[in-house]
């Protein structure tokens, strides 16, 4: 886990957004809006989208209605492939389905405004940051528990590593609760749990 953190920190590149959209004008508009802040990849259909998808991609903007593979089919393959990316589904009509059950992390109704698109991508990136933070937090909790089960209270109070660990844990706990607003709305809650399910090993 520590390695992954170091890699991310040393990577100075912009987050990668993959746009899967069959209408060239629409795709180009999204590209114009996002290109300043992110590395953008453009795919004309679902097949190309899956070709351009790799572990570097942070957010996928996925049109639901496309010729060939539909957005739902692409989403299914993304989830099966266990990519570590967030998916925003773009729909032409207000979804009449139960969005919680659909497996995507956010949805946008066409036509999309620039500020809306930026907000959605940002919130999906923040959610990934929350997951990373939760991972770091868990690693510290494991270390703390190991010390607690192997040393006496008196030993712990004198143990510098343990004292430092407690401070780090407190700091991360505050950050988890504060920086990203915790897990306040239903969408975030479900998306965070979905990530646990994708990432967790079944015993």
């Amino acid at each position: 886990m520590a390695n992954r953190g170091v890699e991310e920190m040393s990577e100075d590149s912009a987050p990668v957004v993959l746009i899967v959209e069959d209408e060239p004008d629409v795709a180009e508009t999204y590209n114009l809006w996002l290109a300043d802040s992110y590395e953008v990849r453009l795919a004309e259909d679902g097949d190309e989208g899956l070709e351009l998808l790799d572990d570097d991609v942070d957010v996928v903007l996925l049109d639901r209605m496309m010729p060939g593979l539909s957005g739902d089919e692409v989403l299914e393959r993304i989830r099966e492939g266990e990519y570590d990316c967030r998916v925003a589904m773009v729909t032409a009509v207000e979804p009449d389905f139960d969005i919680m059950e659909m497996g995507f992390d956010a949805y946008l109704n066409k036509p999309i405004r620039s500020d809306e698109l930026h907000e959605t991508v940002e919130s999906l990136l923040e959610r990934s940051a929350y997951d990373d933070l939760l991972q770091d937090y868990y690693s510290l909790i494991e270390k703390q528990a190991t010390l607690e089960t192997t040393k006496s209270n008196a030993e712990l109070a004198e143990n510098e590593e343990f004292v430092r660990l407690e401070e780090q844990i407190q700091r991360l706990r505050d950050e988890l609760a504060g920086t990203f607003g915790g897990v306040e709305d239903d969408e975030e809650f479900i998306a965070t749990l979905r990530d646990l399910n994708d990432g967790g090993d079944l015993t």
């Binding site: 915790g182 399910n197 015993t203």
Partner: peptide, 22 residues
């Protein structure tokens, strides 16, 4: 815990606690 590893259950509890908090 018989279905899911400790790490995932811990994270689940943390996230659920945050949701209940909200």
């Amino acid at each position: 815990l018989t279905y899911t590893d400790r790490e995932t259950v811990f994270k689940f509890c943390h996230v659920l606690s945050s949701r209940l908090d909200a």
